[in-house]
């Protein structure tokens, strides 16, 4: 990205940054859990914008479909299961300092990773000249030399998720 000149991409990048970070701030600071869920969706939408900006259209659509359309709804359902959802004053979590430490460490690690090329020096010239599209993704998913094993394992994982959900939700009726 070129700094100094005002490109539409830079503008969009700034806009999505505000959405993502602002949404995350709203989630963390809201005492009303449902509003928190709405802020979460704003934040997730910002991430979808980033993906579109990176020309990863499929992932952007998936972000909207799965995270906003499904996980957002699931969060709202989950919030409705709690008591006092509109006014959370107590802090139930006693280990907040651990999470603070971990997130601070992660943040520092990411900053370092961005400034110093820890994961190898990749300039834009090193990137493949062909832009892979969604068809290439499909080919990679189901060819023997590609990612067919992770593809099937993903299915197994999803199956396990359903079994787990049913076991947890219906234990009271045994």
């Amino acid at each position: 990205m070129v700094f100094g000149s005002f490109t539409p991409e830079a503008f969009a990048f700034g806009f999505f940054t505000i959405l993502t970070l602002g949404g995350a701030y709203g989630v963390a600071m809201n005492t009303n859990l449902v509003r928190g869920a709405v802020w979460l969706i704003v934040s997730l939408f910002g991430v979808a914008g980033f993906l579109a900006l990176l020309s990863a259209g499929f992932l952007a659509a998936v972000q909207v479909l799965v995270y906003i359309g499904a996980i957002g709804i699931l969060f709202t359902f989950a919030v409705m299961l709690t008591r006092s959802m509109t006014n959370v004053n107590q802090r139930f979590n006693q280990q907040w300092w651990i999470s603070l430490l971990v997130s601070a460490l992660l943040f520092i690690l990411l900053i370092v990773g961005v400034i110093i090329p820890v994961w190898g020096n990749q300039s834009p010239a090193d990137m493949s000249p062909t832009i892979a599209n969604t068809t290439d993704l499909g080919v990679a998913l189901v060819t023997g030399g590609g990612f067919v094993l992770p593809f099937e394992v993903a299915s197994l994982l999803l199956t396990a998720a359903i079994i787990g959900a049913i076991l947890i939700a219906r234990e009271d009726e045994e």
Partner: peptide, 25 residues
């Protein structure tokens, strides 16, 4: 002409669900 048009329309249509739950709540 989005390369991912089909999944795009399913994705944006799912925003309606959100509107319903927002309005109802």
């Amino acid at each position: 002409d989005l390369e991912i048009g089909a999944i795009y329309f399913v994705a944006v249509a799912s925003i309606a669900t959100l509107a319903v739950i927002m309005g109802g709540w």
